[in-house]
Structures are given as C-alpha cells and as structure tokens.
Design a protein around this nucleic acid. Structure first.
Lengths: 345, 345
DNA sequence: ATCCGGCGATAAGACGTTTTAATAAATCGA
DNA sequence: TCGATTTATTAAAACGTCTTATCGCCGGAT
C-alpha cells in the first residue's frame, strides 16, 4: 500500500534509479528498449512521481499561483478558466487564491504560494502597493499582473484599457442626451474604478462639458450585485440622474434590479450601462449595455507570458499587453434618456 | 540571494536547525525566550519555509485538490468560494482543477493532484466510475464527493437531494396546469440530470399521470447557456410544451433568451423553471423560478469533512450529508400556462 | 553527595528525486 | 588492431526539512 518510489520501479525494471529519472525527464537519452521496460514497470506498479521530492531537488516546481480579488465575479471566473486551460496545456497545476478584496487575505495567499515554491504568480493586485510583489520577485518567483498594467518595464502585464472603456461608456451616454451621469463605483483603491472614471471625465470634457458638474459619484464598499442595490437605494433617495454608469456588471445588475423594483423604467427614466459584459448582461431583465473585455484571452495570454518567462528566461522579453475594450449596446441604453422618446404614460 | 534556509536562520539565532523546525511546528516545546529569538531571525532574514521539503520529509502536505466540472458555472464558483474560505481558515491551499466535462481532463487533473501529494481531494465526479477515486484512496489521499452522494459507507460526501428537487420543480409546473413538460437536460452520464428527471417522474406519477406521456426530453451535450439556446431552437421547431424544466439555470437562461427572441411569452405561452438558483436567476429578463441549493455551505462542509478526515483520522466518522433543496417561485412560472390567465392579445 | 525526572536543545539520519561525474560498452576511422 | 569518440547507464551526492534518539542541565527528593 501507500507509495511506490522510483527505487522500486528501478528494481523491477532491472536498472538504476537514475535511469528512471531520465526516462521521466529526458526520455531521448535512454535507449528505446530500456525506456519501454521502464514504462512497463511504472505502469505495473502504479508509480506516481513524488512532486515535492522533484521540486526540492530540481529547485523548481510545475505549479503557478493565481490570486484574484473575487472568485464570485464572472469576470474573474472567465479569466481563471483561461489560466487553467493554458496552464494545463503546458503541464502546470494552478493554485487558486481568492483575496476577497482583503489585503490581509491576499498577503496570506501569497505566503502560501511562496511556501509552495510556485514557479510564478498571476495576480490581480488589490491595491497599488508593489512591495509584496517585489518580495516575491526577490525570491525568484516571476509575477505577471492580470488586468493591471505594469509600471515597471521588467515586468509582464496583461490589461485592458480602462480609460478608453470609461470614455466609450460615458460618451455613449452623452450621445443619448444625458447631462447628469451617476457613476457607481467600488473603493478608490481599485485602479479599475479610478481609470474608468477618468475615461468618463475625458468623454465629458471632450463634449465641452464640466466633468465636476456632470458626473456624480456613488461609492460602495464592494463590487457586487448587493452593493449595486444599495447604490440604487441611495440614488433613489437623493434623486436620479439622466443616466448611470456602473463600474462593473455585477453592480449594474443589482442596480437595475433595485430600479425596476422601485418602478423606475430603464432606459426611459434612466439609461444604464455596466462594464465587463459578463454572460448575464445580455440576459438580464432589461438587457444590459456594457463594455466588453477579452476575459478568457486575458487569462490565457497572461499564463503564456508567465510560463515563457519561467521556461525561457534567456529569450523572454517582458511585455505590457494592453487590449482595447469594446462597447456593446443593448436595451438598457436603447433610445436613452430623452423625454421625447415614445409616448408619455 | 534567492532562498534562505532553516540552517541560516539557525546560525543567526544561535541554535540548531532542529530548533527552528520545532518553533515552526511545535512552538510549545521550545522555551519562550528561544522562540522569540528564532522568530526575530526568521523575520529579519525573510525566511519562508520550503513547503516541498516539508512535505517530502513529513510525508503529508498542506494542500487539497478541488476538481469541478465547469468553473464557468456560478454553481461551482459558489462551491469553490466556500471551499477556498474553509481551507484557508484551516491553513490549507487549494489546487484547482477544471475538468470541463472531459473524462480525460479530469484524469489528468487527478494525476497532477496525486503527484503533488495533496492531502485530500474534493471532487464533483463527472461520471459514476469510481475506479479513479479508488486509486487515489489507495494512495492514502482522502476523497470527499461534492454534489454527489457516496455509494460506500467509508466515504464522505456532501450532496443535495436532486430527486426531491426535481419533484418540487415538476409538481410546481403541474400545479400550474401543465400537462406536457419539456425536460432540457445535459448528458445522461451526469447523475444530477438523471436524478432531477427521476424526481419529475415521481411528481407526474403522484399526480396520477403517465410520466412517459407528460415528460419530453431534450438532451444537449453541455449544460451552458449556449446549449440552452440550442434546446429552445429544437423545441420551437418540434412544438413547444406547456412548461419547461431545465436541469440547471445556465440552460434556463439561454433557453429563456431564445424564447423571448422568438416572440414566445414567458410564462404565458410557456412556463419555465431552472435549477440551482444562481444569483442571476432573479435578475434575468423574466425572473427565473428555480430550485435553490446551499452552494456555499456545500463547499464549506465538504472541506471541513475532508480536513477532519485528514487531521483526525482516528476520531473521524464518515458522513454522507444530504441537504434539501428549496423551491423559489418567480415570474417565469407566475400564473403559469393556463390560457385563461390575463386577457388575450 | 547522589540519583532521578523533566525540560530544552542538538546531532544525524532519513524522505524521493535529480544531477554530475564517472564507468562501461559500442562504434568508428585509420 | 588500436585508440578516439560516442552512447547508455550508474553511483553517489545533493536539495531543505522533520524526527528520533541522545545529551546536558537544573531542581528536588533521597
């Protein structure tokens, strides 16, 4: 029972342990006949290589870490699926960490990854502080930023232009006639929220208007549907703007639900746009306009960059990949906020 | 640079390597003064324990594996969040595997987990074949089934009564007057699909009707929104029943979308119910009736059972936990399929 | 003064693999 | 036929930690 080691396989095949290792790691160096004999012994004994021993001796593992902010958000799930797919193709396992927006939790997760001596880490950092990541790099663990542009040239990153996305969303709302735009956002420590707002400001300014007068912030503590509902409640109390831009679709879905429950008509009374274009945006009560990001590719490319950096450190060139988002118009902004649309009640 | 080992910490603190190990693993055995000195050295040198060396020597790791069928399904995401949360609290890391419905992929994932010498595995098996899991158990890796009842008394499992759930859904549809019910299902190899149908049969039989005459199967190859759309297309062609029961919400969301696009009114022309009660069920175009499962708890309890089995093998008693699902009625079955509801067009 | 028990700390040997240098065997050119 | 080269295999030493048995020390009982 229990564990069968390389030694027993060696005995069974009538060779030395070193040869087993060669069959496993450099099969071309061992004679075909011997190789076949060893493979048979492995099969017959049900041998499975001890990854920890291998990692210990070889000094490097076949696992990578993935640290995301909210595994419950379909955006990150799609990214994770892309990561898992690419990693699995290249023979790597993925250790998942969910920081749930907490700095502490993220730190603990990174410690676990460091202990596991993962080959590299894919991370959507929960804040701008680079010290923890530098610590990882000092330990020889490569880091690729996901959905976050790298500030340093010696670091890979894969991101989507959030400023452009915010601009698209806001100028779309402006084109519908909106002159007061609510911006429902998560904490300011989240770069995405800040960038998307900045993009919105650009759009407003480009339209010859004053961003301060047009854009009204509603900040909520997390980026979930529940928080979106809260935001709607607060805005219903203080007075609704012409249009609302939610920093992600989860917020928008919750926001929409609360609005409809309160009898507000979308897009007639308020136009609404989200961000991420998660699968359900198209299926929600009023189908949701949004800003689409190539999520699956984000995960895949990030993984490929990371593993290229790990497996070919000499030829690897660091890249900061920046994708462009895409506006998706649906019912929630169709026609829009102008009162003359359709007959009045 | 790079890695600082226990030995250097020992030198710095003026003790032997064994003492460092004791501080790390049995702090109570070392004098408070020494402990403090060691902790300081650890901090100053930025020492991080080499998990692989530890695993190799100790013969057991602090990681568990999680193998799910579809990480893109919010049901599994919620389960995974529960798992991650509980594992993290108990100091375990989670290695994620997504079998994407493929037997091969699942097998590869399990091999990786075996190589990593994970302490245990949480798995939603993609089929009924227990041989792969037995192989894991033979290697001393505990296995807990998630969303799947164990057939053996010496194995833990956490599941939800799918027969009861199917019964709830179907009897609800019957109570609305439905006499022909479409059942949109994934492959028959998926136990959930089979059980939920069986529950529906019970409900139909209990109503004094013939299940064969009432229930009409539409089988699709995967349980995604896209597949739901296909199912709708096929049913639109062959003629719509009074009501439709989709084996999960993803199918139902896609089904609903296709129906609405074809001008079919829900629930007036067709009543529709899904399964899982994912977050978006309440937010879809016509809010979706569904059968709720305690997903997060499923993941948490499964993890707690697994780690209890690992950490206290002597006192551990195997449990087959079975939760009861809950019917959630929303618009998609409100009023229902009877033609006399509301005025005609 | 001696012995005993208990506490803290240590020395040294695993754990299972990879790797390096070395050996043995086979192939080749002259 | 002989040395030179290549090819296939091996022996043995790591990798960093945990653990077992051992040892020294101190206080208290004899």
């Amino acid at each position: 029972m229990g564990t069968v080691s390389i030694r027993e396989v060696a005995a069974r095949a009538g060779v030395s342990p070193g040869t087993i290792s060669n069959v496993l790691n450099r099969p071309e160096r061992v004679a075909p006949e011997t190789r076949e004999r060893v493979m048979r012994a492995i099969r017959e004994l049900g041998f499975v290589r001890h990854g920890s021993a291998s990692t210990l001796r070889a000094g490097q593992s076949r696992t990578i870490g993935l640290s995301v902010i909210d595994i419950g958000n379909p955006f990150f799930t799609d990214v994770a699926a892309g990561v898992e797919e690419a990693a699995s193709e290249l023979g790597y396992a993925v250790i998942l960490g969910n920081s749930a927006g907490s700095r502490d939790k993220e730190e603990r997760n990174l410690l676990v990854l460091a202990e596991q001596r993962v080959r590299g880490v894919l991370i959507t950092p929960s804040d701008e502080d680079p010290s923890r990541l530098d610590a990882l790099r000092d330990r020889g663990i490569s880091v690729v930023l996901v959905d976050h542009p790298a500030h340093r040239p010696d670091q890979c990153s894969v991101a989507v232009n959030d400023i452009a996305g915010g601009q698209m969303a806001a100028s779309h709302l402006l084109s519908l006639g909106a002159r007061r735009i609510g911006y429902v956002t998560g904490p300011r420590s989240i770069r995405q929220c800040v960038d998307r707002r900045q993009g919105a400001e650009h759009a407003v300014a480009a339209a010859g208007l004053d961003p301060e007068a047009v854009i009204e912030d509603v900040e909520v503590p997390s980026m979930t549907a529940r928080a979106g509902q809260q935001a709607a409640a607060s805005l219903l109390e203080s007075g609704l703007p012409d249009a609302v831009f939610c920093a992600n679709d989860l917020l928008a879905v919750g926001f929409l639900r609360a609005l409809l429950q309160a009898g507000v008509r979308v897009p007639r009374d308020v136009a609404l746009i989200g961000y991420d274009d998660i699968d359900f945006a198209a299926a929600s009560a009023v189908s949701l306009s949004s800003v689409r990001q190539p999520t699956h590719r984000l995960g895949r490319i990030a993984t490929e960059l990371l593993l290229d950096e790990c497996d070919h450190p000499d030829t690897h060139v660091h890249q900061q990949v920046m994708f462009q988002p895409e506006l998706v118009v649906r019912e929630s902004t169709a026609g829009g906020a102008r009162p003359e649309e359709r007959e009045s009640p």
